[in-house]
Each structure stands twice: as C-alpha cells, then as structure tokens.
Amino acid sequence: MLRKMPTLFELFGFVLLVIETLTGMVGNGFIAIINCIDWFRSRKLSPADMILSCLSLFRFAFHAVTIQVAIFKLFFVDPFLMLKINIAYDSSWLFLNTSRLWFAAWLSVLYCVKIANFSHPVFLQMKRKFPGLVPWLLLGTVVFSAITTTVAITGSIIVSKCNPFESHLNNSSDSGINTSNSCTKIFYETVRAMPAEKFT
C-alpha cells in the first residue's frame, strides 16, 4: 500500500541518504572485490586483508539495508508490513553494526601489534600469535554478534508487548491474551527478584 506523496523535505533527505549510501557501497564493494581477486589468484589472504574483506562486506550490507528501509518508510505505509520491516531492520542493523565495529577494533589491534615495538614478553607473545588467531576471531565476532542481536531483539519484542498503546493497536483477542500473560509473567518475575525490604 503506497503512502501519500512525500514532502519536499523528505525527498531532499532521501536523495542525500541515497548519495551517501551509494558512495559507501561503491567504496566498500571495491575493497571487497579487490581482496576477492587477490584471494582467487594467490589462494591466500593476509590477516589484514581478511579483516578488511569482512569489514567491507558488512559495511556494504549495512548500507544496502539502510537504503531498503528508507525506501519502504518513505513510500509505503502499511502498518503490519512496516512492523515486520522494522523488526527485520532492527535485527539486521544491530547485527551488521555490531560486527563491523568488532572488525574495525580487530583491525586496530592488528595494526597496533604490527607497528608498536614493546619488549614486554606478553606483547611479544601476542605479536606472534595474533595473526594466526584472526580467522577464529572473525568467526567468533559473527557468532557473538548473532547471539547478542537475538537476545536484544527478543527482549525488545517482549517489552513492546507490555506497551498498552501497542497492544491496543492489535485487533485480535489472542494477541491480547498473550500480551497480558507475558506482561504478568514479567511483572511477577520482577517483583520476585526485588529484595523483601522493599515491601516492608
């Protein structure tokens, strides 16, 4: 279902978003393609190229999700469709954003290990072992981001069910029953976790 015609201010903001997003997609896509070509040629990637490839791919996906949601929010108004889109967008945004922040952090650590010259034994051992740990760190980052995203989105959905305004918008009686049950469960668990002195 199409929404009413966007205002001039909304269209201007949308055009700016498209320009910035496409610029980011082109830059990150170029980095990913170059690294993939090098990988196919040599069948080997350095730790820095591994991190850069993952970072550029996740940034590319992040920009793609951003532009898709902007299109849906600007031109479509179906509330049930938008609810599903918002959940999917929040999940994708949190997963991609968490992952790319971790990738950027690992890239900083790698450059620090390569550039810095410390004589401490712990640092020297880290300098030797860190490059070999990069593939496992990247895999662990993706798994950790997926777990935190699942927990955060599940928690926000449960909390949103206790919102009286959102539950009022649901027309089915079944959703109302589920909402009241989940809210009652959360309330009793919260009260049970509180110390007894609060009630004396």
Rank of each mutant, 00 (worst) to 15 (best):
G13H: 10
M1L: 12
A32F: 06
N181S: 14
F30M: 09
S172L: 11
M25C: 04
L74Y: 00
V65K: 04
S160E: 12
I19G: 01
V159A: 15
V77D: 11
T190Q: 06
I157F: 04
L57M: 08
M82N: 09
I177N: 12
T184W: 09
T141Y: 01
L52F: 08
L124G: 05
S156K: 10
P79H: 01
L81W: 13
F187M: 12
G24K: 03
E20M: 10
G155W: 07
V77N: 08
S173T: 14
I37C: 08
R59Y: 05
Q125S: 13
V143N: 02
S46G: 06
H120S: 10
V15W: 11
L83P: 02
I186G: 05
W136V: 05
L81F: 15
Y188M: 15
L110C: 01
C112Q: 06
P164W: 00
F165N: 08
Y89Q: 11
T23R: 11
L55A: 10
R128T: 09
D90V: 02
I51T: 01
Q68C: 14
W39L: 13
V142L: 15
F123K: 02
L17P: 01
A70T: 03
V159S: 13
T7D: 11
L57W: 04
G176R: 13
L17V: 06
S92G: 04
S160K: 08
L137H: 02
F12W: 12
F58P: 00
Q68S: 14
F123T: 04
F123W: 14
F123L: 03
L169T: 14
H120R: 09
I147P: 00
G13C: 12
V109W: 06
K84C: 07
A146H: 03
L17D: 05
S42Q: 07
S92C: 07
L94T: 15
A104Y: 09
R43I: 10
S182A: 15
T23E: 10
S175M: 15
R128C: 05
A105W: 08
I87W: 05
C112G: 14
S173I: 13
W39P: 01
F118I: 05
S180P: 03
F12C: 14
H120P: 00
I19Q: 02
P47Y: 04
F123P: 00
S108A: 13
K161A: 07
K44T: 10
L96F: 12
G176Y: 13
V26F: 10
F72E: 08
L124A: 11
S156G: 02
T149Q: 03
P131C: 03
C54R: 08
N178V: 08
K4P: 07
A61H: 06
